[in-house]
Every structure is written in structure tokens, then in C-alpha cells.
Design a protein around this nucleic acid. Structure first.
Lengths: 199, 199
DNA sequence: CGATAACTTGAACGATCACTCAAATATTAT
DNA sequence: ATAATATTTGAGTGATCGTTCAAGTTATCG
């Protein structure tokens, strides 16, 4: 054998994700990555091939985490609509110093790269779709459990749900007054709960 | 006297706005600007001082145009709520090849520059606020005209309205199926119209 | 027509970009 | 210890970044 991998791949990827998420793809330089990952350029390229590839790996990580978080919340939720509404309120409840208090990394990526880096954009679109499918499935669960009207358009509701999240997170990104953000999230959450059927 | 300004400042600014809007601040290079404005670097700097300044001027232009468009629509609207709802539907109705079929330039700017170019971000936030104030004023007009309940929170409605626009435009940016975008816009528009009081 | 002034030009600047690779270093197997 | 091997290093690559400025061009004025 030989010298083992010194850096922790996972730690490095986490750091990369954070810088990229903060600064965006174009505005993040190799220098930024070097100091964030505490690795020299050579090591970065040995481990991750290129800046673009490292970005794609960061996206993977972000996507997995986002989807998992949502699924976990839904698994624990007393009902589907309650889970969905709580997911919205959850964003507004984040502590002030939370680094996740900003726009979704997938959204940011699409704004940043759609007209410049087609490969990154394509993959990001696919991730956003898969998350929206999870939302659709949640609404369908609500329907199956009689919470939602049988004729409800789950795909359409899912799109609106995703839009609500984008909106809340954009306000987080802006640093809007927490009270106003809570109000906005509350408005959206109540729209979800208003879909509830009497049984 | 002497030789007059050959380039058309207005034309150049329009072109600059378009490239910046398409590619974003960081991804737009001087080369991009040179070919878009059909000007050599020296001329660009003589006329606009710097890339950052040119971007700020482009933002000005975008902001003026956006606000004016909204005000014009409201002036012609039969009622305030109708005008607001139509404004939402208007985005979904844009022709497929319209270059405005994308995310709002102010939104894009904030996503792109908040953590890297504070001056640009600050000015952009101010513009978004002024647009939201115009929305607030529109809701207040609805209230004054008895269309809206007297206890309605106009500032809160305005924020939600602005969020709706962001959502629709983000879907335009993604190239989502026009039918789905129309549905989304319709959902938001109906939420506005549902605020209408019987008189 | 010559003088003067405004504007355009494009080569060149230092800085930084993403990226490479030969050499140095650290680890394990023998 | 020593050999073999994996990893780290960081100076250096050419390209491109935003920007400058001396020289050239084109207009107007007397």
C-alpha cells in the first residue's frame, strides 16, 4: 500500500458546496476553493478533476440532502398536508445565522448557468424536477388519505408549492425582516391547509 | 466644436442591458460587451467608465422600464385588482421567442451579486423595494375603491404578489411547458381576484 | 485649408483565471 | 532500513480578465 488519502473527501465536498452555494459558480475562483477546502490546486484536481465536476458533485450533495430532509419530514408528519405546510413554515423558522438562510442552490445555479453552462443547467433542472415529483407524490398521498379533493391536480399543486418555497427562500436571501418572512410563509402554508377536505 | 458622438448611447445601453440580463454580471466579459455594443474597449470605457458602472446603468434602464410598464397597465385597468391579476397573466402570455421570457433582471442580479458585489446588490434591493411599493399602492387603491377589505394588509399582499411574479418568471426561465406556466399564473391571478369584496 | 477638438482605435498592462506536472513528501510492505 | 507507491506541493502554463492610453481618425470652426 502507501500513503492514504489525507483529506476527508466528505469534508472537502461539504466545504465546496458551501462556497459554491454562497458565491455561485462563476464568482467562485480556484483560490476560493483552495482556502475553503484547505487543499492546493494539484490536490483538488487529483481528487475532483475540474471546477465544473466539483460543482456537479456539490449539486449532487445538495440535492440528496434536500430530498432526504423533505422525505424525513413527510415520514414523521401526522398527515400529508400538515407535513407540506410545516415544510414551508420551516424555512421561516431557521435561526438567523443559519447558512441555509438563502436561496436554494438549485435555483441559484439555474439563474447563474442557464445561458452559459448547459450541462450544469440540464442536471440542475432534472434535480428540481425530481424534487417536484416528491411534492407531487406528497399531494397524492393527501388525496389517497382523503385529505385532498379527489379531483385535485397534484402536479399543478406541486408546482405552486415549489414556487412558494422559492419565494420564501429568496426573501431569506434578501435578508428581509423575519416577521415579514414568517407572514409570507404563513400565507403559503394556509393556502395548503385550505385545501383540506372535511371527512 | 468637434466630432460628435457616433455611437448611439441609448442603443448601446439597450444592448448592454440585454447581454447582462442574459448572462448575468459575472459571466459577461468585456469581449461579450464589445461585440454586443459594437464598440472597442476604449470607447466603452470613455462612455461608461467601467463594467460595474455599465451594469448599474443597465439596471437603471431595466428598473425604469419595468415600473413604467406596470404603471401604464394600472392606469388603463378597469379596477386595481383586475390590473394586478392581468399583470400576472401577462407574463404567461408572452410570445415564445420574447427575450423577456426569463427571470427578472433584478432578481437575477441579487442572486448573482449579493455575496460578491455589495454595491450592485444594495442598489438592486432598493429597486425591488420601489417596485413592491408600487404594488402596495395598487392594493391600497383597491382598498380605497372598496374592492378590497378595509382590514387587508396591503404590504403583505404586495410581497406575496411580487413572489408570484418571481415564481412565474422563474418558470419562464426554465422553459417550462407554456400550458403549465399559464396554469400557474392563473392560480396566482385567481388568488388576487378572490380578494375582491362584494359591494 | 489649417487648427482644434472629440472620438475611436487596438495593442498592451498587470492581475487573475482554470489548470498542470515534475519534484518532494509521507505512508505502508517487505 | 529500504523499496515501492500514493498523495501533496506550488511554481508555472497559456488564456482571458477588466482596464488604460498614446496614436490615429473624423468631425467642426475660423
Amino acid at each position: 500500500m502507501s500513503r492514504p488519502t489525507q483529506y476527508q473527501r466528505d469534508t472537502a465536498l461539504e466545504a465546496a458546496m458551501q462556497v459554491f452555494w454562497q458565491k455561485g459558480y462563476h464568482a467562485t475562483s480556484l483560490k476560493d476553493l483552495e482556502s475553503a477546502l484547505e487543499m492546493k490546486p494539484g490536490s483538488i484536481y487529483a481528487a475532483f478533476s475540474s471546477k465544473e465536476n466539483l460543482y456537479l458533485l456539490s449539486l449532487d450533495r445538495y440535492f440528496d440532502r434536500s430530498l432526504t430532509r423533505f422525505q424525513d419530514l413527510m415520514d414523521k408528519a401526522p398527515s400529508a398536508l400538515t407535513g407540506l405546510a410545516d415544510h414551508l413554515r420551516g424555512f421561516a423558522k431557521m435561526p438567523p445565522q443559519d447558512h441555509a438562510r438563502q436561496v436554494c442552490m438549485l435555483t441559484k445555479t439555474l439563474v447563474d448557468t442557464t445561458n452559459t453552462d448547459p450541462e450544469i443547467a440540464a442536471r440542475t433542472k432534472a434535480y428540481l424536477e425530481r424534487i417536484r415529483e416528491a411534492f407531487t407524490a406528497a399531494f397524492e398521498r393527501a388525496k389517497a388519505e382523503g385529505e385532498l379533493a379527489p379531483d385535485a391536480d397534484c402536479a399543478r399543486l406541486a408546482r405552486r408549492f415549489q414556487a412558494s418555497i422559492s419565494a420564501i427562500r429568496f426573501e431569506l436571501h434578501l435578508g428581509t425582516d423575519p416577521e415579514d418572512i414568517t407572514a409570507l410563509a404563513e400565507d403559503f402554508a394556509r393556502e395548503i391547509e385550505a385545501l383540506r377536505q372535511d371527512t
